[in-house]
Amino acid sequence: MSVRDDTVVTYRDHTVAAALRALPDAGPQPDLWPDLARALGERRAAMRWRYALPVALAAAVALALLLPHLAKREPAEPTAPIATHTATTPPSPLVANTGSDELSKLHLRSQTLERWIAAVSAHAPQNSRDLMAAVEFEDLIGLVDLQLGATRSNADALPLWRQRVALLEDLATIRGSAFAIAANDAGATRTAPTSPTQFN
């Protein structure tokens, strides 16, 4: 009834094994599943926090770092050459309702620059340094767009539109020379997509 264990010098008595295996099995009483399901839910919620909290903190830190940069840029007047207004997209309701000339002009200029950048970006090769810088500006523009989405008044929106145009001009500068912006404006207008480029 005994067999030799292959790994050590001992004998495995199958009569013991059979007797022990013949003992009745048992299940947890009361049912363990409700407790387990609850604990599982709590653990998942904790896991979500474990991931969500660092992301939220990182976002907050990024915002804290970016805001001073944006605030510094806000009063700056546009320096890049301004392309001819060829906006085909109607102004947003927010802008349309303001009656503010400056806001309308900023919106149209923003559209023009977006179209030009979209046209140039599709054809012009970029070196890695310019590409990285462009990506940074696109991120900043995305951030401004987020803030614009949360504005409730024209007074709040105006400085953000100024920022947006300034950032677009910087992006345009990276994408090409000031001369090229003006020179290519007409071509960009012809090849522009019907909707503005999204940067966020």
Partner: peptide, 12 residues
């Protein structure tokens, strides 16, 4: 005893 005889773990 249980691990060895029933679950068939080795001594190692």
């Amino acid at each position: 005893l249980w691990l060895y005889h029933v679950e068939e773990y080795t001594h190692q």
